[in-house]
Every structure is written in structure tokens, then in C-alpha cells.
């Protein structure tokens, strides 16, 4: 039969982006072990509000592990201790009564805190705008089966495409680097034939946007892979490094000089 837990929470409270934050100690008693982690926070918030307080702000939406909205670091690990799981799919039975749980926002300069545990991840959108697409106009596509793609390539692209854009890779990285995200997004398109024409532009653009956003640099510690709720492999980072080198060579040495009768103006 399901039992209840008594927990000590240390939750990061920060009223706004520029305000100073601190950890607040909250006793969370009688938490059903069948509840999800976010439901535990719902219960805590309900009690805070019943006592006239201000509830803990945290981002969440689908609560089924696919939208990538929930973003919190639980005992030092983004999305908590269970591998391959988002915070919304983490359940309280993984904890023991008497446990102290530290709950913090994703911490990175590129992800400023909005309030409490909610952070601004719009840097990811800016990276996507810098090249995370294939420029195909609606209506201009050929028949879907006109271009066979080997199952291996399609499956591999799908491995990268599983990224939910949650930012756990950034949060867990010792350097707050976004390489796993960027490499998965660029890698998906770069490994498909449809993505080849824009391959170099894409890589250069996305990496530049990543650097501009204030993320750190990858030092190949692979924390990201371990924290990723979708288990995206760091092989994509190797591929991005390779593609970036090739793009630089292409751009600097091989590409035709610009400004000579492109014709597409």
C-alpha cells in the first residue's frame, strides 16, 4: 500500500531576475509516494497559499515528459536522480521519508531566472532561428518518397530529433555549455540529404548564435549525455565539431567569392 513521506525541502526563492535569491527551508510532510515530483510541489504550493504565502513559481506544461518545459535541478541533477526522466515524470517513491531535497533553477548566464525555479530559455529559440531549419517553402516539396533515405540515416536523425529542448544539458554542464542541444538540432538536419544544401550555413550560424548567448564551452565531460532525459548521445557533439571545421574550411577556402552575379537577388 502506498505510504506517505515527510521531506525537508530547500527551495530556491528569487522574486525576479535581478533580485537576490536564497534557499527557503520548507517541511513537506505527508507527501504520497505515488505523487509525481511536480504534484509534490503542487501540494506544497497549496499549503503555502493556504497559509497566505506566495507559491513557488516553476515551469511545467505537458507533465508527460515530452514538452521540455519543466526545468529544475533536484539534488544537483537536472530533472532529478532518475536517468532518462524529466522532473514531471519523476515520482516521489524514489525518495525516502526524512530526505532533504534541494530544488534549484537551471543555472546558466544564458538562462536568466525569471522567478524562483522558472528560467528564460529563449536563447535556444534564438539558436534555432540562426539556422535550425531547412529552407523549404510550403507547397514546393516533391513527393515524400521521391528521395529515399536509408533507414540507418533516418533512425540516426531521429535519435537527435528526440531532443525536447529542455536545457538540462546546459544546467548540468560544468561550463553551462549548450553543445548537446545545438549539436542535436544541427546534427539531425545535417545527417539528412534534405539538410545538405544549407549544412555549412546552418552550422556556422547556430554556433555563432550559441556563442553570442553566453553559454560556456564543451570540455568533453559528457555530463549532458547523462542528464539528458532523452539520452541524446555526445556523438552529436563530435559531429558538430567536425561539421564546424568543414564549414570553416568551406567558407574560407572553397566557397565561391561572394558578390559575383548570384542571380538570386
Amino acid at each position: 500500500m502506498a505510504s506517505n513521506l515527510n521531506l525537508k525541502l530547500k527551495i530556491w526563492r528569487q522574486p525576479s531576475t535581478n533580485a537576490k535569491g536564497t534557499f527557503q527551508d520548507i517541511d513537506a510532510n505527508n507527501i504520497p509516494e505515488t505523487a509525481s515530483f511536480l504534484e509534490m510541489l503542487d501540494i506544497v504550493n497549496q499549503r503555502i497559499m493556504d497559509g497566505g504565502g506566495d507559491p513557488v513559481a516553476f515551469d511545467h506544461d505537458c507533465r508527460e515528459g515530452i514538452c521540455g518545459t519543466c526545468s529544475m535541478v533536484i539534488n544537483g541533477i537536472p530533472h532529478g536522480p532518475r536517468r532518462g526522466t524529466t522532473a514531471c515524470q519523476l515520482h516521489m517513491r524514489l525518495f525516502k521519508s526524512g530526505d532533504t531535497i534541494w530544488i534549484e533553477p537551471f543555472r546558466a548566464k544564458a538562462f536568466p531566472v525569471i522567478k524562483d525555479l522558472a528560467v528564460d530559455r529563449s536563447a535556444f529559440d534564438r539558436i534555432m532561428v540562426a539556422g535550425g531549419f531547412i529552407s523549404v517553402r510550403t507547397g514546393s516539396a516533391q513527393d515524400a518518397n521521391a528521395l529515399p533515405i536509408s533507414k540507418d540515416d533516418a533512425d540516426s536523425a531521429m535519435d537527435a530529433a528526440e531532443c525536447i529542448g529542455c536545457g538540462a544539458c546546459v544546467a548540468t554542464c560544468k561550463n553551462a555549455s549548450a553543445m548537446l542541444f545545438v549539436s542535436a538540432k544541427a546534427g539531425q538536419l545535417n545527417s539528412l540529404p534534405q539538410g545538405q544544401p544549407e549544412k555549412h550555413r546552418r552550422v556556422l550560424g547556430m554556433v555563432q548564435a550559441m556563442d553570442k548567448s553566453g553559454f560556456g564551452n564543451c570540455t568533453n565531460q559528457y555530463e549532458c549525455e547523462a542528464a539528458c532525459p532523452k539520452g541524446i548521445s555526445v556523438r552529436w557533439i563530435a559531429k558538430l565539431n567536425r561539421d564546424y571545421a568543414l564549414a570553416t574550411v568551406h567558407e574560407s577556402l572553397l566557397a565561391p567569392a561572394k558578390g559575383k552575379g548570384g542571380g538570386a537577388a
Binding site: 535569491g21 534541494w102 546558466a108 548566464k109 561550463n175 555549455s177 553566453g214 553559454f215
Partner: peptide, 16 residues
């Protein structure tokens, strides 16, 4: 890298 994380974590953990 240091500048990319201005506020440190209260609880530090390392995965791999």
C-alpha cells in the same frame, strides 16, 4: 566557462 554560470549550485552533483 566560469562566466557562463554566475550563480553556483547550492547542491553540487557530478554524474559522469
Amino acid at each position: 566557462n566560469r562566466a557562463a554560470r554566475t550563480e553556483r549550485y547550492g547542491y553540487n552533483a557530478t554524474l559522469q
